[in-house]
Simulated assay, not measured.
Amino acid sequence: MEIKQLYREIVNEHNLNPVHKGVMEAPTLKLRGVNPSCGDDITLQLKISDDGIIEDAMFDGSGCAISQASVDMMADQIIGTNKDEALKLASTFMGMIRGDITDEKEIEQLDEAAALHDVSHMPARVKCAVLGWKTMQEILDHPEKNEI
């Protein structure tokens, strides 16, 4: 199987069968993210322990396959991390999408989210891919924006 086909299947699986889609009971942080250019609209919910570990991450909302798959993959990646680790993953993801990060070892840290690497060649889809990641950065950097 060709690697691009495998990546398409990973994205498709996260879009059709998202593990982290739903409404979380008693989240610690919650923030809505919108991509008006294509209609993606998500609400990211994070449960953070007293010692700063992201214990759970969920999203609700609608959007294109890329936005939905990306936020689901992101949730997989950040559960079990602390704020700094989650923000570093987001920085790596943004760098990959912008084409600034090309080092395979660095990109491998993104696990399945690395499947979105080719989005960097599709400018119209970049905002879709980064919506969940930007929303996560925003709520972690600015918890005063919490919508709970």
Rank of each mutant, 00 (worst) to 15 (best):
E2T: 11
D60F: 03
D41I: 12
E85P: 02
I3S: 06
D76S: 13
I3V: 11
R8Q: 13
L46Q: 06
E144F: 09
A90P: 04
E55S: 08
E13T: 09
V119N: 00
E55K: 11
A114R: 06
K134M: 14
I107S: 03
T81G: 08
I54P: 03
A113C: 12
A65Q: 08
K88I: 09
H14Q: 12
R8I: 02
L110H: 07
E138D: 14
N15V: 04
H117K: 15
V130H: 09
K145M: 13
D41N: 15
K134N: 15
D40M: 07
G52P: 07
E2Y: 09
N15G: 07
I97R: 01
D72W: 04
I101A: 01
Q68A: 11
K105S: 14
L44K: 10
K134R: 15
I79Y: 04
L29T: 07
L87M: 12
E25V: 12
K30E: 15
K145Q: 11
R8H: 11
S70K: 01
L87Y: 06
E106G: 08
S91E: 15
A69C: 08
T81D: 09
D103T: 02
G52L: 09
W133K: 05
L87N: 07
E85S: 12
I53W: 01
Q109C: 04
D72V: 03
K105G: 10
